[in-house]
Design a binder for these strands. Sequence first.
DNA 1: TACTGATGTGTACAAGTGTTCACTTATGTG
DNA 2: CACATAAGTGAACACTTGTACACATCAGTA
Lengths: 193, 193
Amino acid sequence: MNAALALVGKGRHFASLGIREVTRQAGVVPTSFYRHFRNMDDLGLQLVDELGLVLRRMMREARANVLQADKLIDESVGIFISHAQNNRSFFMFMAQGLAGESRAVQEGIRSEMRYFASELANDLRRLKVAEHLSDADLDMTCDLIVRSVAFSLTDILGISPEDECQEEQVRQRTARFLQLIFVGAAHWNSRPS
Amino acid sequence: MNAALALVGKGRHFASLGIREVTRQAGVVPTSFYRHFRNMDDLGLQLVDELGLVLRRMMREARANVLQADKLIDESVGIFISHAQNNRSFFMFMAQGLAGESRAVQEGIRSEMRYFASELANDLRRLKVAEHLSDADLDMTCDLIVRSVAFSLTDILGISPEDECQEEQVRQRTARFLQLIFVGAAHWNSRPS
DNA sequence: TACTGATGTGTACAAGTGTTCACTTATGTG
DNA sequence: CACATAAGTGAACACTTGTACACATCAGTA
């Protein structure tokens, strides 16, 4: 699994990886692959599981650092971006998998995102942000937030890891997206549709 | 190019396609490939160009049908979704390319999206929507809109083309995302950051 | 100690891959 | 018509690929 991630991190697309290629990178003979996975899709699924762990770690760190609501957005975006930089390969795999060729992997990542969004909704409720929103509307808002941040992945992963300048740009743009969404949520009841 | 699109439409990922595979699907001998493309990346780039045409057609149709601002969102989302259904393979290619392995294709699609967002900003100016926004803020808003709609691609392309029920669901959710963003934009100046 | 289950190894094979070369066949222009 | 240019062909090359099988090595346990 680390070998596959390493290749993805080097710019390869997961869908184009072969068993031999992965085992070669792992320093192991091709046949050993079958001791652990039935095929590449299987490996992909297990990677999704591990991706879940990474995301949960990130959520925990965010919850620990974001105590009051005023610096919520900048703080969270910062944590997200630094996690994306520190686990580049994982997040590349995630970005690829969203439109990948294994339906199962696709659904797995999508489900991780849904879980993330629902946890975010819980946190916002707890922080007494957006108390006027119905549960459904809050869920919708959080879904949009998670999607926007996920899309920023393509921005972050597209720039070189040490280009502080561009990174700062992405950080600010992402934060403004979220601010815009929050403003929308704050005034949502005025147009309950 | 049609052959490659056809394979993508069948669920394959562009990054995993080979020259022989594509020419086989095209009913042509492998060597003929080199008469038209230098390699698969080249083919991908030419597909991006054609994707640009598809998007422009879509924009033209949207401009023709959205005359007044009140039904703007529902109308536009409808047009987008019907185009996505009618050019499934093209939009699949687009979704894949955003995190694909060819940096050039990635940049090409991204640039199409930027163009789309800037045209959208023009239209909104012309329709006198959000007149209170600065140019930069309007650009930012349109960027977020385009991203949200693009993300909905993964939703639409993930469901079967004739599942009207799920399609309607995606349509409504996407429209509500956009409404939320518009509400945010309408009240943006109250928190100019 | 002897055994067992998990992991890794080496060999083998048939099939698929990208790319090259010299060739034929259309198509449209002077 | 003759001719240039574009498009397609077939054979050949050196590799790579997925997968199967029998065998080796190691850890931990009874």
